[in-house]
């Protein structure tokens, strides 16, 4: 600290004027405290109102239904690319007389294990009677049901051919016709 700074310090500290704390100062302080208290209360009230309004708006805009956050369909445990029931060609009665009814619609993967008893007991419906014709749509329906529940074997095993390629049923049909 040099000479000027020492003189500056002395000058600042020596020229202090007496300033008593008067009654008007006290009144002004009280008024200031009251005003600031009012401002604080108003600010707190405004903050509370804003918070409640924001909360209400948020609750109002909140989705009420349960459909919004739910997936549209459960994932299917589909493992084999088999044909869907709608796309399964249901053979017409006129065609069913010459060909096995459900042979084209089954692949080796989505049919049940071949049942030797049912294969031997029920020959392919090649008689051309009306009973066979009424039986074929039922088999298609049952096949669709069985595909949804993949553990249930299809109910149409008598008319379904073994899990063989498509040339196998033709050899079965030919003796009866």
């Amino acid at each position: 600290m040099d000479h000027f700074e020492r003189q500056l310090t002395q000058l600042m500290q020596q020229d202090r004027q007496p300033a008593p704390f008067e009654a008007r100062h006290r009144e002004a302080l009280r008024a200031g405290v009251r005003a600031r208290r009012r401002v604080r209360a108003a600010r707190r009230t405004a903050g509370s109102v804003l918070a409640v309004a924001g909360l209400g708006l948020g609750l109002f805009l909140w989705p009420h239904g349960h459909t919004g956050d739910r997936p549209t369909a459960p994932p299917r445990p589909m493992t084999s690319p088999g044909p869907t029931p709608s796309s399964t060609p249901s053979p017409s009665p006129s065609r069913s007389t010459s060909t096995p009814p459900s042979a084209p619609s089954f692949t080796p993967s989505d049919t049940a294990p071949p049942d030797p008893a049912s294969t031997t007991s029920a020959p392919p419906a090649t008689t051309g009677g009306p009973a066979t014709a009424t039986h074929e749509p039922a088999s298609a329906t049952a096949t669709a049901t069985a595909r949804d529940h993949s553990t249930t074997p299809p109910a149409t095993t008598p008319v379904s051919t073994p899990a063989e390629p498509s040339d196998e049923p033709s050899s079965v049909v030919s003796p009866s016709g």
Binding site: M12, R16, Q17, P18, A19, P20, F21, R26, L29
Partner: peptide, 18 residues
């Protein structure tokens, strides 16, 4: 609070004035 303000008013006022 009043006692503090009354005692230190002069000093604080001089500081504020500077």
């Amino acid at each position: 609070y009043d006692a503090f303000v009354a005692a230190r008013w002069s000093v604080l006022f001089h500081l504020a004035r500077l």
